[in-house]
Amino acid sequence: MRNISDIIEQYLKNMMQAGDGMIEIQRNELADQFQCVPSQINYVIGTRFTFEKGYLVESKRGGGGYIRIQKVEIPKLGSIQEHIVQNVANQMDQTTAEGLIYQLEEAEFITRREANLLRAAISRDTLTLKLPLRDEIRAKLLKSMLIALLSK
């Protein structure tokens, strides 16, 4: 059985798909709808709708406040290799790398199996090196593997 965080995440993603890739919600109203505390909504948004996962989140506090969530679009396949070459820096931490992999999987540029292999290869458990060398090797590995995968 899915937990409340998964249900809220899927609900918000469905709302975005039905619209134009952007939604505005009120935290308290959403919490009432799902019969949970408002901090649960904050948790879902803070962990599942991050920039690394391809979302921009903006909030306005106070009366009439809102939380705006917008999906960031990834370029089409023709320019995705160029996008990777330009945006994968010389160093990359694990969270950022996993965020990029997540975005590519969500956009269906790579399969779940390919994403799992990439995550395993760039993991800090695999790259047991000291920083900053670990982040440098992670960036080079990820860039090379993505270019190879996306040149289908």
Rank of each mutant, 00 (worst) to 15 (best):
R124M: 13
L100T: 00
I4T: 05
E52H: 14
L142Y: 02
I67G: 00
K76I: 09
Q91I: 07
L142H: 03
V57A: 05
I147H: 02
L149G: 02
L100D: 00
R61S: 14
T95D: 06
M92N: 02
Q10S: 09
I23E: 01
G62E: 08
I84T: 00
M22P: 01
S59K: 15
L150T: 00
N90V: 07
P132N: 07
A31D: 02
V72M: 15
N14K: 07
I25F: 02
Y11H: 11
Y102K: 04
M16K: 03
L141H: 03
A97I: 10
Q33N: 09
E82Q: 12
L149N: 02
A121P: 01
Q17A: 09
D93I: 15
F34L: 03
Y11S: 09
A139Y: 10
I69M: 06
M22V: 13
M22L: 10
E9Y: 07
I67A: 00
N3W: 08
K13W: 07
Q10G: 07
S79P: 02
T96M: 12
K143S: 04
D135G: 02
R27A: 05
K71D: 06
Y66H: 14
R68C: 10
M145R: 08
Q94K: 10
K53V: 07
F51D: 13
G62T: 11
Y102W: 12
L127N: 04
V88I: 15
K13F: 08
L133D: 09
S59A: 14
D135S: 15
S5D: 06
S123H: 04
A31L: 05
I101L: 05
N87M: 10
E58K: 15
R124H: 10
Y102D: 08
M1N: 08
I74P: 03
F51C: 09
I84N: 00
E73P: 08
E52C: 13
V44S: 02
M1V: 11
C36R: 08
D6A: 13
E29W: 05
M15D: 03
A115F: 07
I101P: 00
L149H: 01
I137Y: 14
A31Q: 04
Q70F: 07
K76Q: 12
I69Q: 01
C36Y: 06
I7C: 04
A121N: 10
